[in-house]
Amino acid sequence: MSHILRIENLHVAVDGKAILRGVNLEMKFGETHAMMGPNGSGKSTLGLAIAGHPNYVITEGTITLDGEDITAWEADQRARAGIFMAFQRPVAIPGVKTADFLRHAATNVRRPDRKEGEDLIPMRDFRKELKAKMSQLKIDTEFARRYVNDGFSGGEMKRAEILTMAMLSPKFSILDETDSGLDADAVKLASASIAEIGRDKMGLLIITHHDKLLEHNPPQFTHVMLGGRIVETGGAELARELHDHGYERIRKTYPDAEAANQEMLAKEEAVVV
């Protein structure tokens, strides 16, 4: 399979504030990309803009999937076209069982032209498949009966996101800090799961501060984001360098981007305060 996700000159604003200032990125099916960068540089914004969050307004540039311009598409159209994002902090949906949620989601994604009200995947087939995936990911089957992300621990949430990714088998997955808030063992389990589900079976964009996730998922490309732009792209060795030595060199090499980053951080803090 050859699928291409192409991001060209992407500018994104949130609440009227510019965050991304011209991001270019091309990913092919089967590739693993690492997206690194200091806080506030725009990594998650890029992920949410690709996923189609309505508050992340694309003011300039395009996102194309296999040559089709999806810039103006709703989030559900993108999901059905094969875009997936594992969220850093997935929301809980009380009263909705994980199994029911995934069954409906998987039906829609596998049958993109499904109309509302049409049949879902047969319950028996779905249960069998879900059970198999859960045992592959070492997730307790009791999980399926719990409400979506409701009362989940940090580790459970991340694993639920990976399970969702496994059930939806997207063309491209964005993993937003799937390692954050997890202890060492949980990170190990999560990265092994990502490798098992994702490697060579989709394009992976791994947003992370650390290199632990990348040990199991060595990237072909490492991108460094600063001030809403990708300032440098390298191989796996770049990820290692950033992990060992931090972003000092990057900040010094790209003073304009660093200034933009500081400006965004200041605004963010002002909003928080």
Binding site: I93, P94, N108
Partner: peptide
């Protein structure tokens, strides 16, 4: 919540219906 469900392939109406059904669960 609506965005989360949409990002999993639910249409907006399906997402609202899901949340409402969950609320009544």
């Amino acid at each position: 919540l609506i965005f989360y469900a949409q990002s999993r392939g639910f249409t907006r109406v399906e997402a609202v219906r899901l949340i409402v059904t969950g609320f009544f669960q």
